[in-house]
Amino acid sequence: MTNWIDIGALEDIPQRGARVVKTARGCVAVFRTGEDEVHALDDRCPHKGGPLSEGIVHGGSVTCPLHNWVFDLNSGVAKGADEGQVATYAARVEDGRILLDATDLVARSAA
């Protein structure tokens, strides 16, 4: 089951940038690439907890601002020599609005 929630307009996030969504289980970073794709990942680097939403977005990747680990925005998997993975959430754009699948995010906090 999916639970699409409208979290804002695409323009609210700068191209090659990110904003966070606060949830009961911590912040989720929502990225917008240079191609206007959106991706949602936990805003916590598996290395030492760096806020990925503050990183530089390039192609389909983000570089953690603390120690430069690079993550694939689609899979959340660390690239290159580093090992680790960030949880991802389904997100899409419709009519200029960003929709986030909040199934795992809202349900838990309501319980």
Partner: peptide, 15 residues
């Protein structure tokens, strides 16, 4: 300014 705030707050929504 908007860059600094969360784009959405689902904690409130759930409540």
């Amino acid at each position: 300014q908007p860059r600094y705030a969360p784009i959405a707050n689902l904690v409130q929504e759930a409540a």
